[in-house]
């Protein structure tokens, strides 16, 4: 059988490791996570495609490498409800509600209604025991947004890894909020062509 061709984007999984490591050095690097929000939308809105998911997503590549190449995945079949539209769209709404909540809390901090919370919380429950650093003199809402975004990115990464370990390597991609959103945009733009 022909061996699969390797392309540069197959190595983008390295970015996942760099991103999460940088957060431990300085939480302000968490802002770089916005790339993973903007790029898929640019592809979907501008190009009417899911090229980001298909090739350039660091998380998708990370799950492929860990699940398939390293062989960490148990490859069980996902339950039907997880693949269903109700769960996929429900999770997307929940995830973006959490994202907008981060913006709202950052606004509260910026308006001095609320003090900054210097903590990274995973799965909306557990605070990571780490002495987070960020540049002194930085505007508090900028740091608050970084803490929030890093928490959300880490939480989704953990869920993605657990799904990879139990089910097929890229199972997270079935209910990934960004993947669901970009497919929805692509569906709205899609004009079937008779072949």
């Amino acid at each position: 059988m022909k061996k699969q061709q390797r392309h540069w984007y197959h190595y983008l999984w390295i970015w996942s490791i760099i991103y999460f490591s940088l957060g431990f050095v300085n939480i302000l690097f968490a802002w770089l996570g916005l790339i993973s929000f903007c790029l898929p939308l640019i592809f979907a809105i501008g190009g009417g495609n899911k090229l980001f998911c298909n090739r350039y997503c660091d998380r998708g590549q990370f799950l492929r490498v860990m699940g398939s190449q390293v062989g960490l995945s148990l490859r069980r079949e996902m339950p039907e409800w997880m693949k269903g539209k109700a769960f996929r769209y429900g999770f997307m709404v929940f995830f973006f509600a959490m994202f907008f909540n981060i913006i709202y809390v950052s606004w509260l901090v910026g308006s001095e209604i609320q003090g900054i919370q210097e903590a990274v919380t995973v799965l909306w429950t557990f605070q990571l025991p780490w002495n987070w650093t960020y540049s002194v003199g930085i505007t508090p809402w900028v740091a608050q947004f970084a803490f929030g975004l890093y928490s959300l990115m880490l939480t989704s990464e953990i869920i993605a890894i657990v799904a990879m370990l139990i089910y097929k390597p890229r199972s997270w991609c079935v209910f990934c909020p960004m993947g669901t959103l970009t497919q929805t945009i692509c569906k709205a733009k899609y004009v079937p062509t008779a072949k």
Binding site: K2, K3, C53, N54, R64, R170, C173, K189
Partner: peptide, 19 residues
């Protein structure tokens, strides 16, 4: 879900993700 996993693994380049 148009994730592209199939296109990535297909040894003959037969899978396309349509729009």
């Amino acid at each position: 879900v148009a994730c592209g996993t199939c296109a990535d693994v297909c040894p003959t380049g037969a899978m396309e993700i349509v729009s």
